[in-house]
Design a protein around this nucleic acid. Structure first.
Lengths: 363, 363
DNA sequence: CAAAATGAGTAAATCGATTTTTCGCAGTTG
DNA sequence: CAACTGCGAAAAATCGATTTACTCATTTTG
């Protein structure tokens, strides 16, 4: 009914100006906090703003200025807790500084990543927080470089010669996982990963292997790395365990690993589902640690041990670095690593303790 | 090194115009696909665009036009799979139509919800997809109404007299859950919910109760509803089961429910963690069904039965309705309900079958 | 006391598009 | 031949701010 007229034109700076009896320029100055305005006029401007319910149009405002107060954020996905929290944090931080965050999901595609970036460039964003699909050497970072965009790379990166980077200290966390598992007596561990090209997967693998072989030089570390998708990983894992079981029978000695370390969240899920399929239970039949924590991991039985990434810290330092650059900060790019927490939960035990429901007869 | 000069001013429509030897207006028309331009000139424009790598500045473009090609999306949170998928879908759909999606999290706060909305109004968004914290009667919807904004309400809503609504058919799904549980022999069921004010919680509760009491009139349905936060719910649930156990001893008959139906995801987690604490296992000691599915639910042991919401459908129809309104569609607001799928998994069994690890001695 | 500096404010240019208006020119028509 | 029609394109207005340049007073300074 009254809808049509509700759709009134919002009042502009000129409406405020004429109501206050000053020029638009003066209004702009008052609102920007310039002090060279007569207090009386300033008050009249404030009054007019109040009466008209005036609010600056950020679009028009950004039009004139060189750096627009828009930040772009590109994440590989939004479905996981990690990136969900990340977006929430980034959005809050951007808002605090009066910026608007435009978020987009690259859906794990580098092609899409670049397209989104191009669109953000069209918007002339002041800066971009990019969590690349693979690593810092992808086409997206290249695009940013070529177009002189300012940005920060997070998560699946180590360091870059053009952009600041912020990520979890995967290597250190993985080393700690190695220490924990070896401390419990594990000497044959399977590491599961996806995306050999992802900077973090490599760091996690190397961190784990380095620490493990230092503590237990003779130990065995198997690795199952799928290239790009979760589907193949599932099959690879099945084949891997099939092979173990085969040897089991042949030699009468358990060739099956006593623990699995998954380098990423979906891998943890795939491992769990493979355990289910085989009727294995944690930690009696096999131990499990996953990189990336999730809320459900502590309520299931057993609770799943996990590496917790410091989302707040990553987001905070990423934004800090980004705004420093936006405001003209110079100097070589910084590569920042934030420490993780390793939560050892019930899914990890000592090998050979407890009853087995699996096929192998060990010890 | 070459960075500074990379930060070149991007070419504007005037650059294209002068290179093509026409006016800016002509360039605009060619790019908009107006046919009243001499083919020869059109070609020269295209060439110039190509050579300069020109792209329209969406900000400047939106400036002049009445409806800006920006869609706002406000979700209560980004951390869950549901809203993560929702944002992903919405973003994709907006992009398909040449719109930019600006997403923000109200972080389950109605105050913040309204603030975000005000900021989106400042941006003069063409439309808003709002998933309200509580229901359609909050201050945010009020704000939208008062300011003549066009929008669609989703998820925690039933119907509205000013906006189209799209949500999962919670009531029907809950009725199906009731049928399934009663079919398995359950006659004493606890329903767990949060936020009595949330439209969906009420619909789910009523849908469940209605169907259940119709099928098994004498059955017992207990309800534990926390008002606003998960913390209290945890305590309430503990008290509830403590009370059950107390009676257990006193009467020697199990007053403990044989199944729990959680009306929302976090409730499912809280229920699971309470089961853990008491050493109860699904489905032997108690059955569990939760509203909202999650990836992990099918890989844990037992797999958790859940109601799957049709995210794609909700997002799709929400955007459809929104764009219809943006393009001037009239008519009374539509309230749309999308059917859910109920996945019965291992967490549901028949009462009294299987061994018990809990305290009560039943049958 | 004249010249320079300062203060307070305004008109106009600008940002980069879109849209409306105007204009020139060619071809028709009365 | 004047008037009219149409077409294609240019010129100008517009969107809503910010910023620069400039105008008067008033005050300070040499």
């Amino acid at each position: 009914m009254a809808r049509r007229q509700d759709q009134q034109r919002r009042s502009s700076i000129h409406d405020v100006a004429s109501r206050a009896g000053v020029s638009a320029a003066t209004v702009s100055k008052v609102l920007a906090g310039v002090t060279t305005v007569k207090p009386e006029n300033a008050q009249r401007v404030f009054d007019a703003v109040e009466q008209l319910g005036y609010r600056v149009d950020p679009l028009a405002s950004d039009m004139r200025r060189a750096k627009r107060r828009i930040i772009g954020a590109i994440m590989p996905e939004f479905e996981s807790e990690f990136f969900g929290q990340m977006i929430t944090e980034l959005e809050g931080l951007a808002e605090q500084r009066g910026y608007t965050l435009v978020a987009a999901s690259s859906r794990e595609s580098e092609a899409r990543e670049k397209e989104i970036l191009a669109r953000m460039h069209d918007w002339r964003v002041a800066g971009v927080v990019l969590a690349p699909v693979r690593n810092e050497h992808g086409p997206a970072a290249e695009f940013m470089k070529a177009n002189g965009m300012t940005g920060v790379l997070i998560d699946r990166v180590l360091s870059d010669d053009a952009f600041d980077t912020v990520s979890a200290d995967s290597a250190a966390a993985s080393a700690e996982v190695a220490r924990e598992l070896i401390g419990k007596g594990h000497r044959h561990i399977l590491v599961v990963g996806l995306g050999e090209q992802a900077a973090t997967v490599r760091a996690r693998l190397d961190g784990f292997r380095g620490a493990a072989l230092k503590l237990a030089p003779g130990m065995r570390i198997d690795v199952v790395l799928a290239e790009s998708d979760v589907g193949p990983l599932r099959a690879q894992l099945r084949d891997y365990f099939d092979a173990c079981e085969g040897k089991d029978q042949g030699e009468g000695k358990g060739e099956r690993p006593t623990a699995v370390y998954s380098l990423f969240l979906k891998g943890t899920l795939v491992a769990l589902s493979e355990f289910r399929r085989r009727g294995w239970h944690c930690p009696n039949d096999i131990s499990l640690v996953g990189f990336d924590d999730a809320e459900w991991m502590q309520v299931t039985w057993p609770a799943i041990a996990a590496v917790v990434q410091p989302v707040r810290e990553i987001a905070g330092h990423a934004m800090e670095a980004l705004f420093a650059r936006i405001e003209g900060g110079e100097g070589p790019p910084q590569a920042r690593l934030e420490p993780c927490r390793v939560l050892m939960r019930e899914s990890v035990g000592s090998p050979g303790s407890g009853s087995h429901s699996g096929g192998g007869n060990r010890q």
